[in-house]
């Protein structure tokens, strides 16, 4: 149900009041969002000297040094494919769980809360939990050893980053999927069954297509978050998994080369934009 809103000109006298109400939020957004981001983009066209100070004037020097450096190219590709891999694993694990939750009759609310509540816990805490599980003396290696299996290298490796990120991102994926399943009416599946479709066909022809919008949204969200995440790759990668986000931090805080950090930030935004474009195109096909 929507609330009736008194129509625009009934409140035309309230123009000044409207501005007053919006002024605080505009103020915060200008000083801590719009201005900094614009400034950051401008920063990517500056160049740092060896001492960490900035050269005068704006040019493409920092950009061209980045583009010419194979190190950054391989980092970009690694970021993208690890992001894609994490997205895929997250989807595969989340889909059956979300389907189960959306179909649950008993304790549905509790199940949803269980799936979503990890979001409310700091990424540092959850990643630390994974260090406890995956660490060399951790829970999983101990478990594997008790079955006489030699554990692979779980921490300070890409495998560890993928496992941790998957779990961190699952709530987002489940949320998106649940919103997609909302449209799924079980009578549709029953109708398909009466028309002679077996369980697999029902899934392939009815459930999957109807849940596609949720799948796409979840994938976009997870990919974008995976590409830009920093805490988990840093903690579980142990410095061995260099991604765009970790490099931005190192450049900004350790090397103090802000123009390079700014360029990499713009690069992440470009990856975002591209993902968004893909998402838009795919959504059109699915609709």
């Amino acid at each position: 149900m929507t609330v009736s809103t008194v129509d625009a000109d009934a409140r035309s006298g309230g123009g000044r009041l409207l501005l007053t109400l919006l002024l605080p939020i505009i103020f915060v957004n200008v000083i801590a969002f719009i201005a900094p981001v614009a400034n950051l983009v401008a920063m990517s066209f500056r160049e740092a000297t060896a001492t960490g100070s900035m050269k005068e004037g704006m040019d493409l020097a920092t950009w061209s040094s980045l583009v010419g450096d194979a190190y950054y190219w391989s980092m970009l590709w690694r970021t993208i494919w690890i992001g894609a891999l994490i997205t895929l694993v997250t989807l595969v694990l989340s889909y059956p769980l979300a389907l189960f939750v959306s179909r649950a009759e008993k304790a549905k609310a509790l199940l949803i809360v269980l799936c979503i509540s990890p979001l409310l816990i700091s990424a540092v805490v959850r990643t630390y939990g994974w260090m406890v599980i995956l660490g060399d003396q951790g829970f999983l290696p101990a478990l594997l050893r008790s079955f006489n299996v030699t554990p692979p290298r779980l921490i300070n490796s890409q495998l560890g980053v993928v496992i941790g990120m998957t779990e961190i991102l699952m709530p987002y994926m489940i949320l998106s999927l649940l919103s997609g399943f909302g449209k799924l009416d079980t009578t549709l599946e029953q109708a398909a069954e009466t028309l002679g479709a077996g369980p697999l066909t029902v899934f392939r022809r009815i459930v999957l297509p109807l849940s596609m919008p949720g799948v796409l949204l979840g994938c976009l969200l997870c990919f974008v978050l995976a590409v830009s995440s920093f805490i988990t790759p840093k903690m579980l990668g142990g410095g061995r998994v260099a991604l765009l986000a970790t490099e931005i931090y190192d450049q900004a805080i350790v090397t103090l080369n802000w123009p390079v950090a700014a360029c990499l930030s713009v690069l992440i935004l470009i990856v975002f934009g591209t993902a968004l474009l893909f998402y838009g195109q795919l959504s059109k096909i699915v609709e």
Binding site: T5, V6, D7, A8, R11, G14, L18, L22, I25, N29, F33, P36, V37, N39, L40, V224, V227, S228, S229, F230, A245, I248, Y249, A252, W258, A261, A262, S265, I268, L269, F272
Partner: peptide
């Protein structure tokens, strides 16, 4: 409660910081 030109655009702008990677926002 107000209906004004650019209301939806403004709403999107105010929720945009959520879409920006926090690493970029933090640096900026």
């Amino acid at each position: 409660r107000w209906n004004f030109l650019g209301r939806d655009a403004l709403t999107s702008l105010f929720t945009a910081p959520l879409l920006l990677p926090s690493i970029v926002l933090g640096l900026a």
